[in-house]
Nucleic acid binder design. Structure first.
Length: 548
RNA sequence: GCGCCACUAGCUCAGUUGGAUAGAGCAUCAGCCUUCUAAGCUGAGGGUCACAGGUUCGAGUCCUGUGUGGCGCGCCA
């Protein structure tokens, strides 16, 4: 974020003073307190510590030798224990505005990820039911992380992994079948003990009964297969339609079954055997995780011949490696924390660079209203599904609320606040800033006001104008940090700051009605804000309405 | 018992790799619309950063221990 000429000047000065070892330790930050200027560095403190010299003295030596274009710098000072503080000039900031304005829609884009492939896997719910709130948070986090990387120029694959063959699907089939028999009049027909008790199972059974009557009444393997397939399709259709409402579309639905049909499961077993990492015990096949630094060995093929989840998970991630991804991101709920070390260890044993795998764990979601936890939907009387939440508060609110907290924090979703279509709701604060800007441009057009793109911006000097530029300048860095840390919340927070800076500017500085060159300079300020808001909201998956 | 996550204002949460006087929103109180959207702006009050030690020029941030809450610890996924 700091301009290059400052970085260069410090590098040169440090070399000149014989501190070349510290050149790569130079860090700049924006001081919290404005009185310390725009850019600060603690490099003199670091040097002082290591050399056991007075840091203030070192800071003064450095500042006396620094050379900059004096038009870009207002003041350099040494403060406190030895911070070097730099105040940039208005000229510098207005030139920055020009630069951002000229980049247009591309401001904040980067070529950082060019020729780099990243895979983001998220949602990945098996087709045995409807998406719930946890899936919603998972989906929004994953999609926004994918958007962030795409924005940085990475080649992004959005992936959904599912299993439609295992035991869970048998339970689904039997659950629907039982409800179906009950619907056909056998109210006492036994429901499987480990079955899915959700009401959607009854919906599916009802649909089947209405379409096919008692055609599938006999309990045969063939008929159960029918119930399984029907249930799977039904669930997937619901899942896709829910995700579609949030504007989430995956590039690839990866079926676990392909790992079996293509022999990839057996390949993994063979490799692990060759490496002497598996053994038979109690009729099952065990993987010697203790040889890989973990505390316990685990079963990878049950005595029944079926693999446990670990084996396909390892094979699946191996497949991702083989597809050539430079970065493999998994979005998982915190209930999966215990399973990941096994998979990572397995991949390490297979010889893959596991530093390329990043698992993002998000904590749980609780729904509250008026300070009390909400468990059931008032409308349906069932526990809340993601779909119900979307229809209640709208997709923009859902996406923003799921992203406005740290991934690793528990998320309290305040239904009352979310439902509120007022200033209390933070989503509208951002969208309102955008709509306001659009409205200014509309009004200007109506009144026949033309902006002069060539106009000079150096006339800007109001504190709110300069503050807005300062906030705008942070955008590219914010995107990079949010991507690096896999924290869309950082972007959400930033956009909130930007909206605040704009609303304050708007209140203090008029655009329409100002004389040139102020008119066009302020137009550029608004235009850059509009672009950042639009792009930022798009990355978060929130719409940017031109009117509110 | 073990592992991971959290603990910051009445409530919900920010707090970049350790930095200077710990910040927002909501709630409470007080102001601002004949002028580009008041879904906005301005101001006030509100804190032992869970607790106790440690590391150092400097700790909300790093280390150790304790407490409270959440999630896991299967031949379930």
């Amino acid at each position: 974020m700091e301009p290059e000429f400052i970085q260069k000047a410090f590098e040169n000065t440090l070399k000149e003073l014989g501190f070349e070892n510290f050149v790569n330790k130079i860090r700049f930050e924006q001081p919290r307190n404005e009185q310390f200027g725009d850019i600060a560095t603690n490099i003199a403190l670091l040097i002082g510590k290591e050399k056991k010299e007075n840091p203030r003295k070192i800071a003064e030596d450095i500042t006396s030798k620094l050379s900059f274009d004096p038009n870009l710098i207002d003041k350099i000072s040494v403060d406190g224990p030895g911070f070097i503080n730099i105040k940039l000039s208005n000229l510098f900031f207005t030139q920055e505005l020009e630069r951002m304005f000229n980049l247009g829609e591309n401001y904040g884009k980067s070529s950082k990820g060019s020729n780099r492939k990243v895979n983001v896997e998220y949602v990945s719910a098996n087709p045995t039911g409807l998406l719930h709130l946890g899936h919603g948070r998972n989906a929004c986090i994953g999609d926004s992380i994918a958007n962030l990387y795409q924005w940085l120029g990475y080649d992004v694959t959005r992936e959904y992994y599912f299993n439609n063959a295992g035991r869970q699907m048998q339970i689904l089939a039997r659950s629907i079948y039982a409800r179906y028999r009950q619907l056909l009049g056998e109210e006492e027909f036994p429901f499987p003990e480990d079955g899915y008790f959700g009401d959607y199972i009854k919906d599916i059974a009802k649909e089947i009964a209405e379409k096919f009557g008692d055609q599938y009444k006999v309990e045969t393997a063939e008929n159960l297969e029918f119930f399984k397939k029907y249930g799977e399709n039904w669930c997937f259709e619901k899942i896709r339609s829910t995700l579609e409402k949030l504007n989430i579309r995956h590039d690839l639905f990866f079926n676990e079954d392909t790992l079996y049909s293509t022999g990839k499961i057996n390949e993994v077993i063979d490799i692990l055997k060759q490496k002497g990492l598996v053994y038979q015990k109690d009729g099952a096949l065990w993987l010697a995780f203790t040889k890989l630094g973990l505390t316990e060995d685990r079963v990878i093929v049950k005595s029944s011949g079926e693999p446990t989840y670990r084996l396909p998970d390892i094979a699946y991630h191996r497949d991702k490696f083989e597809r050539g991804f430079d970065l493999i991101v998994d979005i998982l709920g915190s209930d999966h924390i215990a399973t990941v070390p096994d998979v990572i260890a397995g991949l390490g044993a297979l010889g893959y660079d596991t530093s390329k795998v990043k698992v993002v764990f998000h904590q749980f979601v609780t729904l509250t209203e008026n300070g009390e936890q909400v468990k059931m939907s008032k409308r349906s009387g069932r526990s809340y599904t993601l779909d119900e939440l979307i229809s209640e508060v709208g997709p923009d609110v859902v996406r923003f609320f799921f992203l406005m907290r740290n991934v690793s924090s528990h998320l309290e979703f305040d239904l009352g606040l979310a439902r509120e279509q007022s200033e209390k709701n933070p989503v509208y604060y951002l969208q309102y800033a955008y709509a306001r800007i659009c409205s200014i441009f509309d009004t200007a057009k109506e009144r026949g006001i033309e902006f002069n793109f060539e106009a000079n911006t150096t006339c800007l000097e109001h504190p709110q104008e300069l503050n807005l530029i300062k906030v705008q300048r942070r955008f590219p860095e914010v995107i990079e940090i949010a991507a690096e840390k896999f924290e869309p919340q950082i972007l959400a927070d930033y956009l909130y700051d930007l909206a605040t800076a704009f609303h304050t500017f708007y209140h203090n500085c008029r655009i329409i009605g100002s004389e040139e060159p102020i008119l066009s300079a302020r137009f550029k300020l608004a235009k850059v804000t509009q672009t950042i808001l639009k792009n930022g909201l798009t990355i978060l998956g929130v719409s940017a309405p031109t009117r509110m």
